[in-house]
């Protein structure tokens, strides 16, 4: 069993790592990481904008974004992926690469989830912080930037982490529209071997687990550092500061 796993990795590691590259498009683990990182990097600021719009006093901003968030959250990601894959070329006539289709879909989908988390974090702070900042002469955005968001985002780290981990796992759905990612590579390996699906997909699962676990670990380190700084050095050590789910699979979404 272990020998099988080692043999598979030994033989196919390059394919699993970078796909057909340089003879074909970049794929494998590299592409999965790039897709994940880009999705998170774009979805995060996008989600902050969505949250601002949801909290805006202007209906023209609030309503369309509310609709977007509700629709996105009420539809399975796979549906959205298929829609953008078939519908966007039909509507625009442009041939969009599947990587870009997947990236855009993930940004919109995870952006919607993230925006609700961020919005909740902002609302939970209460009016007092905003009042205090405004009374000192900060503009709305200055108050958001220097007073509200540093607190809201910090408080929401556990929930946002769940969404980030979910994003990484959701990149696997790119498989259905032929995004050459890690899942795609593993499936190619499986098609060549034919007899060892359990071993191949165990390697796949382990790899995803390590990626997601690393992100969780990294976030915990960052969070602990912030907590320690905010608690000051003289503060008594508090145990179990925040209820953080340490398992990457604790990310339930409808």
């Amino acid at each position: 069993m272990i020998h099988d796993l080692i043999a598979i990795v030994d033989q196919y590691w390059l394919l699993l790592l970078i796909g057909q590259y340089p003879n074909g498009p970049l794929g494998g683990l590299a592409n999965t990481l790039i897709l994940s990182a880009l999705s998170i990097a774009i979805a995060f600021p996008f989600a902050i904008l969505l949250a601002f719009a949801r909290l805006s006093k202007y209906r023209i901003l609030r309503w369309p974004v509310t609709v977007l968030v509700y629709v996105t959250r009420g539809v399975p990601l796979l549906m959205l992926v298929l829609w953008s894959y078939f519908l966007v070329p039909l509507l625009t006539g442009a041939d969009v690469p599947s990587f870009l289709t997947m990236l855009t879909t993930l940004v919109v989908y995870q952006g919607a989830f993230l925006s609700e988390i961020i919005r909740a974090g902002i609302v939970a702070l209460g009016q007092g912080q905003m009042d205090a900042a405004r009374a000192l002469g900060h503009s709305y955005f200055s108050a958001m930037r220097y007073v509200i968001l540093p607190q809201a985002l910090y408080n929401m780290i556990p929930s946002m982490l769940s969404t980030f981990v979910a994003t990484i796992k959701d990149t696997t759905l790119g498989y259905v529209i032929n995004v050459p990612d890690l899942t795609f590579a593993a499936s190619q390996v499986n098609n060549q071997l034919l007899t060892q699906p359990f071993q191949v997909f165990l390697i796949l699962a382990l790899t995803y687990y390590v990626i997601c676990w690393s992100l969780t670990w990294l976030t915990n380190v960052v969070e602990r550092r912030i907590t320690r700084r905010r608690a000051g050095l003289v503060a008594p050590k508090r145990r179990g500061q925040l209820p953080i789910s340490l398992t990457p699979n604790a990310t339930e979404q409808p």
Binding site: A132, R134, A135, L136, H138, P150
Partner: peptide, 30 residues
């Protein structure tokens, strides 16, 4: 507003900033 000092019943200090940063932040940013 920046020329009218306001003190709240519930203090409303910025909990993510140290005391000195609470005091210094708005002169810097505003």
């Amino acid at each position: 507003r920046s020329r009218i000092g306001f003190v709240f019943q519930s203090f409303n200090l910025f909990p993510h900033l140290s005391a000195v940063d609470n005091v210094a932040m708005s002169p810097i940013r505003v």
